[in-house]
């Protein structure tokens, strides 16, 4: 994790911009980064600030950004050719076990952002991939066409029932499992903490291995400041952001 590349910010330029939904766009940058899905970068705009973003792609680097605060709104003002500085990749990403089996991806809200990147990697490694994509309403769904275009079998849920199953992403869990191919299922989830805890509980009762991409208030991102502690002593920046367990339940060893 201390490899020179992870340390200093390096400038990238915006190569293209993809509009994902009304509030979300993907910045496609001009270079690639050796990184795993689930890892994150600290994005810096001088004189504005620095925030964590999960990688939505690594070759080239993509950041899928919802305009939810001052910094993400500033990212939405970037035009093609503008610069953005990144340090990373940081943290531990998704680590698909071998041999390849069936992957059930569960994404809620903006948490869907890294799942296209993950789906691409899994498919390339020979996995069967299905995904549940959940959002509050149809207009908030993210990356549905992109995942479908990869050949990922999709279940959609919306809380208002405007598209797909009415309810939460976890409400489609059993349907997605029932339709799964004859292969060992590993669950990969990214989304709000409540959804992640629910996914972890479902996997526990069904005996399924799970990898959860956690979200936390991130400051130093180098394991010093303690801001990103989750549960009883896990550091999201170093131990995560992807955990092979529910970090609010399990204890870190050392």
């Amino acid at each position: 994790m201390s490899e020179a590349l992870a340390g200093l910010h390096r400038p990238y330029r915006v190569a293209s911009i993809r509009l994902e939904n009304a509030a979300t766009r993907t910045l496609v940058l001009d270079r690639s980064l050796a990184a795993d899905p689930g890892q994150f970068v600290m994005a810096w705009l001088p004189d504005v600030g620095e925030k964590p973003f999960s990688l939505a792609g690594a070759d080239p680097v993509c950041l899928t950004v919802a305009a939810v605060g001052p910094f993400s709104r500033a990212l939405h003002t970037l035009a093609v050719g503008d610069r953005i500085w990144l340090r990373g990749p940081l943290g531990r990403g998704f680590a698909p076990p071998s041999p390849a089996g069936h992957a059930l991806l569960v994404g809620g809200g903006y948490g869907v952002a890294p799942l296209r990147f993950l789906a691409e990697r899994l498919l390339a490694a020979g996995w069967h991939v299905s995904a549940i994509v959940g959002a509050r309403r149809a207009a908030d769904l993210l990356l549905v066409e992109a995942l479908a275009a990869l050949g990922v079998r999709l279940w959609l849920t919306t809380e208002d029932g405007s598209v797909g199953l009415r309810g939460l992403a976890t409400d489609a869990f059993d349907a997605a499992l029932t339709a799964a191919p004859e292969a060992r299922t590993t669950v990969f989830a990214c989304g709000p903490v409540g959804m992640l805890a629910a996914v972890a509980a479902l996997c526990r009762t069904r005996g399924l291995p799970v990898q959860l991409a956690w979200e936390a208030h991130m400051r130093c991102a180098v394991g010093l400041c303690g801001s990103c502690e989750v549960g009883a002593g896990w550091l999201t920046c170093l131990d995560g952001p992807v955990f092979p367990c529910d970090p609010t339940v399990a204890l870190p060893m050392g």
Binding site: S2, A4, A6, G7, L8, H9, M42, W44, G49, E50, K51, R87, R219, C220, A221, V222, L224, C225, S227
Partner: peptide, 19 residues
């Protein structure tokens, strides 16, 4: 505010600010 720390190659630099 961020950035509060980074690895600059020969070590770390931080200014967390006594949070």
């Amino acid at each position: 505010p961020n950035p509060v720390a980074l690895d600059w190659g020969g070590g770390l630099i931080n200014a967390i600010g006594l949070t």
